[in-house]
Write a protein that binds this DNA or RNA. Sequence first.
DNA 1: ATCAAGTATTTTGATAACCAAACTATATTG
DNA 2: CAATATAGTTTGGTTATCAAAATACTTGAT
Lengths: 137, 137
Amino acid sequence: MKIKNLSQLIVELYEKLSSWEEDVVKDSGLTTTQAHIIDIVGHSGSIKMKDLAEKTGVTTGTLTVAADRLEERKLLKRKPHESDRRSYLIELTPEGESYFKQHHKFHLRMTEDLVSDLTEKEQEIFAGIIEKVLGKI
Amino acid sequence: MKIKNLSQLIVELYEKLSSWEEDVVKDSGLTTTQAHIIDIVGHSGSIKMKDLAEKTGVTTGTLTVAADRLEERKLLKRKPHESDRRSYLIELTPEGESYFKQHHKFHLRMTEDLVSDLTEKEQEIFAGIIEKVLGKI
DNA sequence: ATCAAGTATTTTGATAACCAAACTATATTG
DNA sequence: CAATATAGTTTGGTTATCAAAATACTTGAT
């Protein structure tokens, strides 16, 4: 297998996933950053600003503003940290949870769509290879 | 194969690729948009603003500004269209070409790294599955 | 040939993302 | 307790982004 071909295929796959994700996020009325934040909080549960900023890959200053927007839209809330008065815990509101679940469902549909031409066997092999690539095996 | 597992794996793979790409682009001193534009022009060669905007997935207004920045940095240039005086052809400068080639090399290294734990056979299967997923077969 | 309609790009006006650095409030440590 | 560290916000500045208006040119129909 020439690395060149494989590289090209991976880039194309990445672009396909990327464009799907962007389309669905924009349709939902959030920016990609906002959706990313909802997704991380949805997965992590209650999380400190600082840790959330780190996971999101932005500075705390950037996150402050993004959290403001999401709080305005009632998708998340800041809860005072019980033992550290400098800190907040970020949590999803019911609306935020609902967005998160919906987005999760989109991923399932997207995956179904993506692998619809693969046999059951091929899907398993695909999963195994991705696990290996991710260093999970 | 449960779609749920596969979906999770695909999301994780996507995130891994995404973070690699972002890291390397930021290190290069360009924004992701700028790198995206260089990449598209590098692949397409001489291309009209309108077509470039479409391929990049932004409005022509957005592209005008981005092209200005890249022209300031001497990575691309506007060349008047020979037969349509409303239009420009966008091309990479030698510096732009050099950036493009370097980025391409990064993709190759990334791919090598990514599939280093796979056997030759597995790499071929992986490529075949991606081709199928992309509708190339 | 001319004039209306269409097209390519730029400009404008607004919101949002993003960073680094300064700032505020609280916590920790010597 | 004082000095230092940490969590989050604010500030000042660049860039991305869009929709809609403006500009300059092309095309099609009469």
